[in-house]
Design a protein around this nucleic acid. Structure first.
Lengths: 194, 194
DNA sequence: TACAATTTTCAGAAATTTCTGAAAGTTAAG
DNA sequence: CTTAACTTTCAGAAATTTCTGAAAATTGTA
């Protein structure tokens, strides 16, 4: 199968970017190709289109399945395994998002939780402990937020993302509606510093 | 400088995770160490604590500066350069977030925009084009959302993240308050497929 | 200017990751 | 059971990334 120059560019780019998302170049390419291709592809077709070995394809497919990013299909009268990207673009994005959370955030939270159990022995360790606590709080909040986001359906996600600067007002709105959260001392912007 | 076993674990872990965040193991370790250490450190101290070469430290510091994650300080009467993590944990998180957007999302958007300019030549390319359009829409929305988030101050971010399941209700609230966004055809939940 | 302290650079070494392809494993059909 | 079609595995090769350390460059001081 010959790729159009368009498809070629798409596939190569997601190959490079892929490593950022947690898989290697070839796996990224395979996924990109399955995403833009019209209909399922089998391992030989992938190997030929991407000019990589059959064994490499096999390993890549395994990884993509572990990420739940592709699905297996069968064509009547053909013993080969065929694959497509699993679900809509939104589904794919959500899946990548969720998997990364599980693989990156969760282990870190586990470690930090453990570190926070030991008593600091001196000044140095007390400071470190405090920083670890801060990182932990931040990451845990992120984790919960990510969890919330990944449960929203496409419609609500769309709404939320489109809010833009409306988000500010919305947060005020909420504060008023519920009376929750500190009333704050106005504009404490320049506070952070080291 | 000897690291406590706590610091050791923290530093090693963020070394491993670091690669996910866009820099390599040693750079991740250096950053982690500067984050939990009480006070600034110079290049020699970093090299000794992490048991890596002086040259490696120099390269790592350069990269962390490019990420705007560390700041340079000087101690009176000492010609060495001293470094600390730049700003609060929140500042650091925001910076990493923003830098990653610039380095990953933006180039992808640029490429996709370009691909969308060429006319599809056949059925196959039409399908591909359509998929590319979907990916583009999604990523652009993400990009804008990320942009919005990174402009919120710590207080509002905190509010937003703590909303949890309240987010759902909030979105409804907003819809009612403004009358904006599609009225939708009720509950199209089961559409996605896995 | 001279010099000592310090940082940066970068070629090659070391470590790590990815890829290949042949062999082993699996499965459906007759 | 046997065979052919297909998939997976994995040892070693290839590619890529990271690291070292000595030499070059820079900087502040006198």
């Amino acid at each position: 199968m010959k790729l159009s120059s368009q498809a070629q560019a798409f596939v190569l780019h997601f190959g490079e970017m892929g490593s950022r998302w947690g898989f290697n170049r070839t796996v990224g390419q395979m996924f990109a190709l399955l995403t833009i291709n019209n209909g399922p592809m089998n391992a030989d077709q992938l190997a030929e289109a991407l000019k990589i070995s059959r064994g490499n394809v096999s390993m890549g497919l395994k990884e993509l399945q572990a990420w739940r990013l592709i699905e297996l299909h069968h064509q009547p009268g053909d013993r080969k395994d065929y694959f497509t990207a699993a679900g809509s673009i939104w589904d794919l994005a959500r899946t990548v998002f969720e998997e990364r959370r599980k693989r990156e955030l969760d282990p870190t939270l586990t470690l930090l939780r453990q570190l926070l159990l030991t008593e600091p022995r001196d000044e140095q360790e007390t400071v470190a402990q405090k920083k670890i606590q801060e990182v932990y709080s931040l990451l845990e909040m992120l984790d919960q937020f990510a969890n919330t986001l990944s449960k929203l359906d496409e419609k609500d996600l769309l709404k939320l993302m489109k809010l833009g600067s409306g988000l500010n007002k919305l947060l005020d709105l909420k504060a008023k509606a519920t009376g929750s959260v500190s009333k704050g001392s106005g504009s404490k912007k320049g506070t952070s510093r080291t």
